[in-house]
Design a protein around this nucleic acid. Structure first.
Length: 655
DNA sequence: ATAGGGTTAG
């Protein structure tokens, strides 16, 4: 308080303090702001205003920045205009940027926009893809003689790349008499963004002076085109690295579904390098890592990241909150996911979509639907992905009529054209409920071409409801699309076998072999002490495999006493019963469970993630096991969670 | 001024 009184007497020292805005906390800025308000006005009110605006901008608070601007708006000078334009454009408030620029032109013809003004405006034009406005601004730049200004020319080149006008961008670049490293970097990232990674690499190779940005842009170019090896090669060769290049490489792995690699690289990032300097991960890094955790169900690491966020007192921004919420939901902790969700101050359509599909995965359809209506009453418009969550909630709970109603709501009221994914949900919903005729009818009349997944959903229904004729028809369709579709052969084989048509079954098996159909290998993961262990079906590579097998055998014996009967129909090899049972006990989820059992203390909840659907036999086995060894089991299969407790499963055997 | 981020059926 004393400090405040002293400061209030003089504005100059306050302004001096505001200059080091990067080291100030947002609360200190608020205090300095208050001090300015109660102190006698300086000769030019623009000076403290500009400092305050940039201080708020560096803390991503463009609302406060606007407030300051309007408080001084009696006579803003060019610098004040420029700081507010920069504040808006750097926070992607592009429409507002253009609005303020137009106001500036209209209001005060004595102020002539300079390079700072134009760079903000061009960035906004690029962001909004308003080509006419962009070209008009380009003309204005030329008329005012700014065509030799590097800042402006670089922004122009970038803008034309965003407009996908590669020729214009290249022409501008070639005509620039002075180019700096930023001009080259803009060109590289421009070519990368249009998908021309080869062209970008040619530029990269001929560049004389490369900056860390050139390397990062090139790495991102490779990861976006899926070429992770080339990206990693460059990454390893970089002379120096900052957080952004690490993020680019880690994000590259997560976006290309290489989640374990992403986590491995993240751990490497935190190892002290030769220079002894450790890079601190920032919010972008953590978002990527959390996304990888979510996909792998790596709860321990995810929790560690959450702890890190708390320890560093990082702000839970929209991206981080969403990533954290999704990680918890996909790792089986729906309660924690809900808590994060409710604590988030700003939620967008992505946040709501995450919680809805999270609840859906956990079979909490009613709650998911309540969430959907809450979201609408908050005035947030659902998108196609939100509806995917809603429909999958209906599918997992068998709410056929609700599903049909939401599908119509999406098409008719929200005018969102259904994608093949939505039809996939609907066909699945109808097929499981035994409404196979309707499901097939939907495929025939749908507006987009059905894919293997859609037909596969119908095939699943044919299997459950033993409709062999339709099943055969569907298999033909599927094999037209994918002659090596493993599921079709397995389905046919099982259908023939159970109908006693052993010759057909054998023929099917031969065909499968001759076409070299490879079944996706079943795989389960379990995390023990922050390390993820991977088990494939029949996998004997784990160092403690003997103990693991011993544990499964012992447990299966125990389960037999309480009524477990191995369901050997799910084993597709024509071998004798005993071998079939052995094959069953080598299922990846059982191996993972047994490993969890022997390596965690009694009563610990066991979490398993599987890449395919849990098989019938394992599902029964897990139900009984949850009682026999008194463990809760949360198993995530490729589409949902199974929460086994006291002999039953949260999916009510509907999956 | 140029490089990095979250949700997507089975």
């Amino acid at each position: 308080m004393v400090l405040l009184v002293i400061l209030a007497n003089l504005q100059t020292p306050i302004v001096q303090l505001l200059k080091c805005s990067s080291t100030l906390t947002i609360h200190q800025i608020f205090q300095l702001h208050a001090a300015i308000l109660i102190s006698p006005p300086s000769i030019d009110p623009n000076i403290p205003a500009v400092k305050l605006i940039s201080a708020y901008t560096s803390h991503a608070n463009d609302q406060q920045a606007l407030l300051v601007f309007h408080h001084h708006h009696s006579n803003p000078n060019l610098i004040a205009w420029n700081s507010i334009l920069k504040s808006l454009s750097s926070h992607n408030k592009w429409t507002q940027t253009l609005h303020y620029f137009n106001t500036l032109l209209l209001l005060d013809s004595s102020i002539s926009p300079d390079e700072y003004t134009f760079t903000s405006v061009l960035k906004a034009c690029a962001g909004l893809l308003v080509t006419k406005k962009g070209e008009k601004t380009h003309g204005m730049v030329l008329r005012r003689g700014h065509h030799s200004n590097l800042f402006i020319m670089n922004s122009l080149v970038d803008m034309y790349f965003k407009f996908r006008q590669v020729r214009v961008a290249r022409l501008l670049f070639d005509e620039m008499c002075v180019k700096d490293v930023v001009s080259w970097n803009t060109l590289i990232s421009g070519y990368c963004s249009t998908g021309d990674v080869i062209g970008a690499r040619e530029l990269f190779d001929v560049m004389v002076e490369r900056s860390i940005v050139s390397w990062s842009a090139m790495i991102a170019g490779y990861t976006h085109s899926g070429d992770l090896d080339k990206a990693r090669d460059l990454f390893d060769k970089m002379p120096e690295r900052n957080v952004i290049c690490w993020n680019a490489m880690i994000a590259g792995y997560t976006q290309n579904e290489r989640y374990s690699d992403a986590i491995r690289l993240f751990r490497e990032m935190q190892r002290p390098v030769e220079s002894g300097r450790i890079l601190t991960p920032n919010d972008v890094t953590l978002v990527c890592v959390l996304s990888a955790c979510a996909h792998l169900g790596a709860l321990d690491l995810g929790k560690w990241v959450h702890g890190f966020i708390k320890r560093k007192k990082m702000e839970l921004n929209l991206f981080l909150g969403n990533a954290l919420c999704d990680m918890y939901a996909k790792s089986g902790c729906i309660a924690e996911a809900k808590e994060i969700f409710h604590r988030m101050i700003h939620k967008d359509v992505v946040s709501w979509s995450i919680i809805i599909s999270g609840l859906a995965m956990h079979g909490k359809a009613k709650e998911a639907l309540v969430c959907f209506s809450d979201m609408r009453s908050m005035g947030i418009n659902p998108n196609d992905i939100t509806f995917l969550g809603v429909l999958s909630a209906c599918t997992h709970a068998g709410l056929v009529e609700d599903g049909i109603r939401y599908f119509d709501l999406m098409c008719l009221e929200f005018e969102i054209p259904p994608k093949v994914e939505h039809y996939g949900c609907m066909v699945d919903l109808l097929s499981r409920a035994g409404r196979l005729e309707e499901a097939e009818g939907m495929i025939q009349t749908m507006k987009v071409a059905p894919n293997v997944v859609v037909w596969g959903a119908l095939l699943g229904g044919c299997r459950i409801h033993s409709d062999i004729d339709r099943g055969q028809r569907v298999v033909e369709r599927i094999l037209e699309l994918d002659p090596e579709h493993p599921g079709s052969y397995v389905y046919l084989y099982n259908a023939y076998s159970s109908a006693g048509r052993l010759e057909d079954a054998a023929a099917c098996r031969l065909k499968m072999r001759s076409r070299q159909v490879v079944k996706t290998p079943a795989c389960s993961w379990i995390e023990v002490n922050t390390t993820v262990y991977e088990f494939f079906m029949g996998d004997r590579s784990h160092p403690r495999i003997e103990q693991i097998l011993e544990a499964t055998r012992e447990l299966s014996g125990k389960l037999r006493v309480v009524g477990y009967r191995p369901d050997t129909s799910v084993v597709s090899q024509s071998i004798d019963e005993e071998e079939k049972e052995n094959a069953l006990s080598m299922h990846s989820e059982k191996l993972a469970f047994a490993f969890g059992l022997i390596s965690t203390s009694e009563g610990t909840l066991i979490r398993i993630v599987k890449n395919l659907r849990v098989c019938n036999d394992c599902h029964d086995w897990m139900k009984l096991a949850s009682t026999a060894v008194n463990r809760e089991i949360i198993l995530r299969d490729r589409s949902r969670f199974h929460h086994f407790k006291d002999g039953s499963c949260s999916c009510n055997d509907y999956w």
